[in-house]
């Protein structure tokens, strides 16, 4: 039962990262792809109708995590107190940037201001999310009760008294930043025309090299920081398909990008994100929040909720998700096609 819910949470998290990932990514490359006011308005319009739905995946994942693994929710959220509250503030700022920009469409100071807020919040969010994942992989100083609290940073090392930020978690943040920037550019390339389309493609083309670089670097770093992550791969060799798929998706992205097939390149970067996360999750299982002292680690077994709650949720959850996917299909179909510069809503 806990295995099923572990996979469901992982699935929802992957959905969140792929979906909100592209609109966060669009924010990261906002100034590169949109060179003037009208173009930046077009960037916002590509994500306008969908970003809110994408963000719902975060809330829905949070909700499922809450009832399926309450102890994990309690421990992780209180332990990451400061960065999480800052994430909340960034989410507020970013949403304001997206939705308030077009309220005074013809006021240049107003739109410039919200462009900046939107882009800055997107950049910081990507780095925060990556650093959060880095913390989970590195492990946190859980006490015997399963709680912890980390300062923002200490000595930047991955052992002893760790902080939220150290060289490894910052590296994870950079990986997330580059990966989402490329993913968002793929999305923008798919949704825009002419010059914006070409510029977005170019960001992918250049960003791709950076992405390959930081990906390799981060995989090496993971093996140094948490060598036990490979145990599951040795135990279940089919898992090696995941790193293969990471490599394949990177190659495919380059290929499709060069050929100008933006949709396929976007799907490739989606697969890349899914496989990177999947690889981490596969290696961690059954840990959900490793402790620096392994005896205190939180696992799916010691954080899960009661049997009845988990089984009854298996009845309503699929229904809800299938209906939600229905809305998604309808929404994306209604707003399909490219966004034109200078068009009104």
């Amino acid at each position: 039962m806990e295995l099923i819910w572990f996979m469901i949470v992982a699935f929802m998290l992957v959905c969140y990262v792929i979906l909100d990932g592209f609109d966060i990514g669009a924010g990261i490359v906002h100034y590169f792809v949109g060179r003037n006011d009208a173009e930046r308005a077009a960037v916002i319009r590509t994500i306008g109708p969908v970003w809110d739905g994408n963000e719902v995946w975060l809330l829905a994942t949070g909700g499922v995590l809450y009832f399926a693994f309450p102890m994990l929710y309690a421990s992780a959220f209180s332990g990451f107190y400061l960065p999480l509250i800052m994430v909340l503030w960034l989410l507020i700022m970013r949403a304001a940037g997206i939705e308030l920009r077009h309220q005074l469409e013809h006021n240049h100071m107003w739109t410039s201001f919200w462009d900046f807020v939107f882009s800055l919040a997107s950049i910081l969010l990507a780095i925060f999310f990556g650093a959060a994942l880095g913390n989970v992989i590195r492990g946190v100083p859980l006490n015997s009760e399963g709680y912890f609290f980390e300062p923002l940073f200490t000595h930047w090392g991955t052992t002893g008294e760790t902080g939220i930020l150290d060289w490894f978690t910052v590296l994870s943040g950079v990986v997330a930043f580059v990966a989402l920037a490329v993913h968002g550019s793929n999305y923008l390339a798919m949704k825009t025309e002419d010059e914006m389309n070409l510029r977005a493609r170019k960001v992918v083309g250049v960003g791709w090299y950076a992405l390959v670089g930081v990906t390799v670097l981060s995989l090496l770093a993971v093996m140094y920081v948490r060598p036990t992550l490979l145990d599951n791969y040795y135990a279940l060799p089919i898992g090696w398909l995941i790193p293969l798929a990471v490599a394949a998706s990177l190659a495919a992205m380059k290929y499709f990008n060069a050929k100008g097939q933006d949709r396929s390149a976007f799907i490739s970067s989606g697969v890349y994100l899914a496989m990177m996360l999947g690889g981490a999750v596969f290696g961690l299982f059954p840990l959900v929040l490793p402790a620096l002292d392994p005896a205190n680690s939180l696992t799916v077994y010691n954080t899960r909720a009661g049997d009845y709650g988990l089984s009854v949720a298996l009845l309503w959850w699929p229904i809800g998700i299938i209906i939600a996917l229905g809305y998604y299909t309808f929404l994306f179909r209604t707003f399909k096609g490219k966004v034109k510069v200078g068009e009104e809503h």
């Binding site: 829905a60 909700g63 809450y66 009832f67 009661g306 709650g309 309503w316 959850w317």
Partner: peptide, 10 residues
């Protein structure tokens, strides 16, 4: 969480 998380997730 095992109880009220259900309604929040729903």
């Amino acid at each position: 969480g095992g109880v009220i998380g259900q309604t929040l997730a729903m």
